[in-house]
Design a protein around this nucleic acid. Structure first.
Lengths: 158, 158
DNA sequence: AACAGTAATTAGAATTATTCCAATTACAAG
DNA sequence: CTTGTAATTGGAATAATTCTAATTACTGTT
């Protein structure tokens, strides 16, 4: 049975979160903990709605607005990345390392793809002078050939 | 003074369009001409609304729905690319060559950045096996240092 | 030129993700 | 325990886009 703390933040994550919030002059709250925790517990790029239903299990009174607020806060603090694909609902993933995304056209799932730092640097060299990129976003689109409809290396998403 | 044909399609573009439409079993129409023409005439990544107002000058009765329809048609035919940035309105650019986009945070403008074929190939090699990408999307985010608020090499956007 | 069949266009309603708002609640510091 | 600020809330509001159900325009055929 899932205890009230099945998604409790590991000590390290908790510190990461509280530090980041403090650095931004924001408070640590139960909802922010829960939401960050739910993202870490299941790294499948959920939408705000999906986070909402997951988190409601542990905080039944939470509102969707709060989920949006908290997610936005986490993004601002650099702990979470917002991932957009066309006009679909924004999805969220805990950041940690630089990576690209692979969008499977067939299933709609999103997979993380490791993106080495030196590749990022090389890409930035494509920019004509005068253009300073502080970040970049790389998305692949195609089909992943998975035998049993299950992810192998990368993390799946709805 | 702008004549009724100030945005008339150059012969080559007209052929490109009609061929692409024919290949997809679609008809050439005045509206499709106008919209494709307006994109080519000013390559500044306009939104559907912006295309709407531009095209209304020459076809005052055109509806926004038609603009959306035509843009979608052009995208399907591979003549135009839809560009998304976060949750902003989709912007459209005539395709022609493989390229990345640079989003200027300050102005919101989008610039095209040439993306050599061999770089694309190299990037696809980042994918673990089992993942077949048929296309990729590369977006830079940052600030462009332009002296007079005017584009130098790349094409500006609203 | 009239006809049939399909495709394109239209105006406006409907949808959807997200943001805004004004009111309440929860903390944190003095 | 007050007081100020930040967080949360539910519901209304927004904005881009899509859908719908007609109408209109072509295309190819007689």
């Amino acid at each position: 049975m899932a205890s009230k703390h099945s998604h409790a933040l590991p000590r390290a994550a908790k510190e990461l979160l509280d530090d980041a919030l403090a650095r931004h002059g924001l408070r640590g709250t139960r909802h922010r903990d829960l939401i960050f925790g739910s993202l870490l517990a299941r790294r499948d790029h959920p939408t705000a709605e999906e986070v909402f239903v997951r988190v409601k299990a542990m905080a039944p009174t939470i509102s969707l607005a709060t989920v949006y607020n908290c997610l936005e806060t986490l993004v601002q603090c650099g702990l979470v990345r917002a991932v957009n694909h066309e006009r679909d609902a924004t999805r969220y993933c805990p950041n940690l390392s630089e990576h690209a995304h692979f969008h499977d056209r067939r299933t709609g799932r999103i997979y993380d793809v490791d993106l080495p730092e030196d590749v990022v640097e090389r890409l930035k060299e494509l920019l004509p002078k005068g253009y300073e990129a502080d970040s970049l976003e790389l998305n692949f689109h195609g089909r992943s050939a998975m035998e049993k409809g299950r992810a192998e290396k990368a993390t799946a998403s709805t």
